[in-house]
Design a protein around this nucleic acid. Sequence first.
RNA 1: UGGCCUAUAGUAUAAUGGUAGUACAACAGAUUUUGGUUCUGUCUGUCUUGGUUCGAAUCCAGGUAGGCCAACCA
Length: 554
Amino acid sequence: MAEEKGLNFIEEIVEEDLKNGKYQQIITRFPPEPNGYLHIGHASSICLNFGLTEKYGGYTNLRFDDTNPVTEETEYVESIKEDVKWLGFTWKNELYASDYFDTLYGFAVDLVKKGLAYIDDSSSEEIARLKGTPTEPGSNSPYRNRSVEENLDLFERMKNGEFKDGSKTLRAKIDMAHSNMLMRDPVLYRIKHAHHHRTGNKWCIYPMYDFAHGQSDSIEEVTHSLCTLEFVPHRELYNWLIEKLEIYPSRQYEFARRNLTYTITSKRKLLQLVNEKYVNGWDDPRMTTISGMRRRGFTPASIRDFASRIGVAKRENLVSMSLLEHCVREDLNRIAIRRMAVLDPVKLIITNYPNGQTEEVLSENNPEAEDNGGTRPVIFSGELWIEKEDFMETPAKKWFRLAPGALVRLKSAYIIKCEGYNKDSNGNITEIHCTYLPESKSGNDVSGIRTKGTIHWVSAAHAAKAEVRLYDRLFSVEDPAAEEKDFLEYVNPGSLQVIPEAYIEADLGNAKPGDRYQFIRKGYFIADNDSTPQHLIFNRTVTLKDTWAKESRK
RNA sequence: UGGCCUAUAGUAUAAUGGUAGUACAACAGAUUUUGGUUCUGUCUGUCUUGGUUCGAAUCCAGGUAGGCCAACCA
């Protein structure tokens, strides 16, 4: 018996609603505002909303919450659609809150007619002053008791553009002494003579979030409207408006937003990183935007797996980046082709290998692939590049790699023995001299020798070159937003290390943007969008787990 | 100092009045032509005080801690 994984609290609600026949199918929506790029937090929400209807039947709409023309742009709409698709989800309808502006206007008129809304001439400062504070009740606006006729007339003239921005608002008439600040006559409509990315100049009044979101849910007959915890106080207003408007009763449920260590998930702060050039755009691979993670080499499957593993709940949280890394390594281990690349090279000469001779050795493409991956030929010669860090002049304890007199296996080729090395005047190793054991060739090893260590290499005369970009966490502290100083103070100066010329297997010259590899012993990499055959660029998605790094720190 | 929300290993999440489990992390070991992968094992937890109950992580009350709420943002 497979043990049943417990349901999260939202799944429980859905199962209950389905079981007691409240709904035949469920409808959810993913409602981004098109004022920025989607990030890993949105990915969780996308997985939640789409995952629910995939699991229980029904569908999910993509609805842009575009009620503030000042901050919203078509560029963001396009990126959001691309990101949702890339994650592997298909929305039923592509919708916009702005599609409902006429209906919403009608709803507002209805509310006015019912005596439940009024036009207020107070300035925003005045409204704020009369609002009171969380501990003190507010007081009524002097305009609160206008007649229905006057309100109707003024609202229509607001719509017709007779008034300046900020001069009037439409407010719900609820209770200025309510313990919930949002119920103290919330503003429903404001005047903005601004160009909207979809409706152009048709409107000069725009509904507020509270008078658009729930109403849009209702129009679409969304059954479960999921949002983050900061909207909990809005639920009372959400329900009040639905009740007074007598429209379809969508229900709002709130979950805790997901936070990830060493990153930030605030659109405002992400925008700041972009605008102030801390990163190279929204899709910089250091960004935990979905587009950044895509360029970094994360797979949709790994992000979905991550979202499902962290689950959903109502308590504050800070999820460890190591879980995300685990998810992507697990996926990439299965699908990434193995190749050899030397990032920080030192020359290795095999002194007893016949001068000018070359030969082909066979190396595995991916021992972890379901179909075994097959093999590829790699050219071997007497002059190779290996990693500087694979040689130690005076070996540490438990050192399995090259050192004077030590034996090590060259991956898929021969066992070599270090016979000597050259140093320059600064003490840097410039060249390592080895002999090889001809009888130790991989696949035909009759040497009887087993080495503890295996290192990777490329033939110096046959290697291709590539730019390699090594990425590390963008911030040097776990929770930059919670620190004393401004979050920008904690940007990790070493978050990007560029290697202009790494030596790579010649075969890698054919890499196309988006191709993923494991550079053996170095990590998972993806060919960057800007990579061309003339100038190859690889981004490191994530390192391999490195138990030696841990060991050597002891 | 009003209202609302939350509290389970280091982290994230299960257990729905009946043996506190899983994953990641950490640690130890086995395997390994990647110090990768895989496998085995170990460590660590119910915020606190009362109450209800045969029995409480779960229900109730008080306390404590954290979060949210005073944009014509969403």
